[in-house]
Design a protein around this nucleic acid. Structure first.
Length: 540
RNA sequence: GCGCGCGUAGCUCAGUUGGAUAGAGCGUCGGCCUCCGGAGCCGAAGGUCGUGGGUUCGAGUCCCGCCGCGCGCACCA
């Protein structure tokens, strides 16, 4: 049990003694000001109303009835409007390192997910061209969110939905056919809404050379799926399942969904089209399901697809998408509600991300050679490396626009946050290498933790001990950028400590204690990077 | 026009889900340093948190109006 947990328990006991409600749940927080102690609670202010007393009076009575020697509390102050500030012995704080060493790879994780299943769908690009930077942001986000859920005890399925049916694929096929026709000496126009990138020409050439007995359409989709898989591999993202939109048609799920929606009475015919009353579920206008030409709009297969998620047992599903798709949110949910099959209202959850702008030498980069009108994920990975691309995509919260500074991402200097964090980890490894010590052999037994009392040591240790609660809140809010920010700050503290205090060649008990701290920092930095899908090199 | 998102230091952005005197990096100014692993370290200046109201012990954070920017408003995805 951590010192904070002990204080909390004791606070609850004391508060009940004063007649506080049964469900009293004190909030423990770390004051940002060090003169406010190591832990603080606002409990006395919260209790002011129910107990009909002044916060400061309540705080005093709480203090008087608490016994906190075993938690290592050395002082309690009452400050401001009624905050209670707790000071903990330096040695007691440092002894928390024991948990880090013991947990090792699993430090930071928890079991709050309790093994429940969750489906995380991301990237889901149309197989109509190479992946662009927006897909890259989704890949980094989706993968990090998945890992966050995994380390907090969820059973995650990473899923990719291929829109391999519908109008965009028709456009793709027509575009390739136009280039093919050119190759064969008959000039042709790429159709309206078609694709113009260099890769379309390449596809036509390859089809012309081999073709392999496939239609242009089949060939193009197959080749582009292969290419997207290579992009994702280069980025280090793996999926557990690929779901093909076309299978929804071939297995009759689209038809089933239409039938069930009609049966629900939430549909009507108008001007030859079939509409769904999505306005009954919060949409601003009703939506067409089946067009007057008999084909379906995209949103119907989307609903059918999410029905399969529900039927496959996923009571929780998360979709990571670009914010330009945000209008699908109410529609898909409305469709699921209209089916009246018990799907929860907020199903699926959405993580929407804003646009990515790529900057190089102070100017916006808009085109790639192969894709023509946009920058691809592979361009970025080739230029700055996988780790930097991952970090830069994850350093901002998803609903902020993101400027990707290629020059900074590529630089091998401490101004580059990825390099800075990895360097901190490598430095910790360097201590063990120079000292010829196997880090796995570092033990917290018989260590004099009170020797880790330098301010830089205490700051670093507190940051390391905050890691598990940070991971939990990042997982709960689906916000990996919190991990990115935390790692940068923790790396800074590790660098500061490293510069000021030497580990090796000190008095033996000092060296032993500091090795435990170096080991703790190494573990936390490594585990944090792992959540973001970034490597933790041992030397740089 | 309607919907969603964003607006925090000169620049790029954090802000633990409502807490105390709003933080970091870069840049600027001043001063040290050459250290297990590399130009690193210390300090200073810099703010009406877009704006006007509201909610309460307490608001950058929640609610409403306005301004600015982005995205979306198809029988496209």
């Amino acid at each position: 049990m951590t010192a904070a947990d002990q204080i909390r328990t004791e606070l609850i006991r004391a508060a009940r003694g004063l007649g506080a409600p049964e469900d009293v749940d004190p909030l423990m927080e770390r004051p940002r000001e060090s003169s406010h102690g190591d832990w603080a609670t606002n409990l006395a202010m919260v209790l002011a109303k129910p107990l009909k007393s002044r916060p400061r009076d309540i705080a005093e009575r709480l203090r008087d009835s608490m016994s906190l020697e075993s938690a290592g509390v050395s002082k309690i102050d009452i400050a401001g409007p009624g905050f209670m500030n707790f000071w903990i012995d330096a040695g007691r704080i440092a002894s928390g390192l024991r948990d880090i060493i013991a947990a090792n790879e699993s430090y930071g994780g928890s079991k709050v997910g309790a093994g429940r299943v969750v489906n995380v769908e991301f990237v889901s690009a149309n197989p109509t061209g190479p992946l662009h930077v927006g897909h890259g942001r989704q890949a980094a986000l989706g993968d990090a969110i998945s890992t966050l859920l995994e380390v907090t005890g969820w059973n995650v399925t990473r899923e990719y939905y291929y829109n391999d049916a519908g109008v965009q694929i028709d456009n793709l096929a027509a575009s390739v056919e136009a280039r093919l026709s050119e190759l064969r000496g008959k000039p042709a126009q790429v159709p309206e809404g078609g694709y113009h990138g260099e890769y379309i020409r390449e596809l036509a050439e390859r089809y012309n050379a081999t073709g392999e007995g496939l239609s242009v359409r089949e060939f193009a989709v197959r080749e582009l799926r292969k290419e997207q898989d290579l992009d994702l591999q280069a980025f280090g993202v793996r999926f557990d399942r690929y779901f093909l939109e076309s299978s929804l048609y071939t297995e009759g799920m689209v038809e089933d969904t239409v039938r069930l929606l009609v049966a629900s009475g939430k549909t009507y015919e108008h001007e030859g089209a079939l509409w769904l009353r999505t306005t009954e579920f919060g949409d601003d206008k009703d939506r067409v399901m089946r067009k007057s030409d008999g084909t379906y709009t995209y949103f119907l297969p989307d609903v059918a697809y999410h029905v399969t998620k529900w039927k496959r047992g996923f009571r929780r599903a998360i979709d990571v998408q670009g914010a330009d798709h945000h209008s699908t949110v109410t529609r898909v949910r409305a469709g699921l509600q209209a089916l009246n099959m018990g799907v929860t209202e907020k199903y699926p959850e959405y993580v929407l991300h804003q646009m990515v702008t790529v900057m190089k030498h102070g100017e916006e980069v808009k085109i790639s050679k192969r894709a023509g009108s946009y920058v691809t994920v592979r361009d970025l990975v080739n230029e700055v490396g996988r780790d930097a691309v991952r970090y830069f995509f994850l350093m901002r919260k998803s609903d902020s626009q993101l400027i990707f500074n290629v020059d900074l991402a590529a630089s091998q200097s401490e101004e580059n946050p990825v390099y800075y964090i990895q360097m901190a980890h490598a430095r910790m490894c360097g201590i063990f290498r120079v000292g010829e010590i196997d880090p796995e052999s570092v033990s917290a037994d018989n260590v004099s933790f009170e020797l880790l009392s330098e301010p830089e040591e205490q700051e670093l240790i507190k940051a390391l001990l905050d890691f598990p609660s940070l991971v939990e809140s990042a997982a709960e809010t689906l916000e990996p950028q919190r991990i990115a920010t935390y790692l940068l700050e923790t790396a800074r503290l590790a660098h500061l400590w490293y510069h000021k205090h030497h580990v090796l060649e000190q008095a033996e008990d000092v060296t032993r204690a500091r090795l435990v701290l170096a080991r703790g920092a190494q573990i936390v930095l490594r585990n944090g990077l792992q959540i973001l899908g970034i490597t933790a090199p041992e030397r740089m």
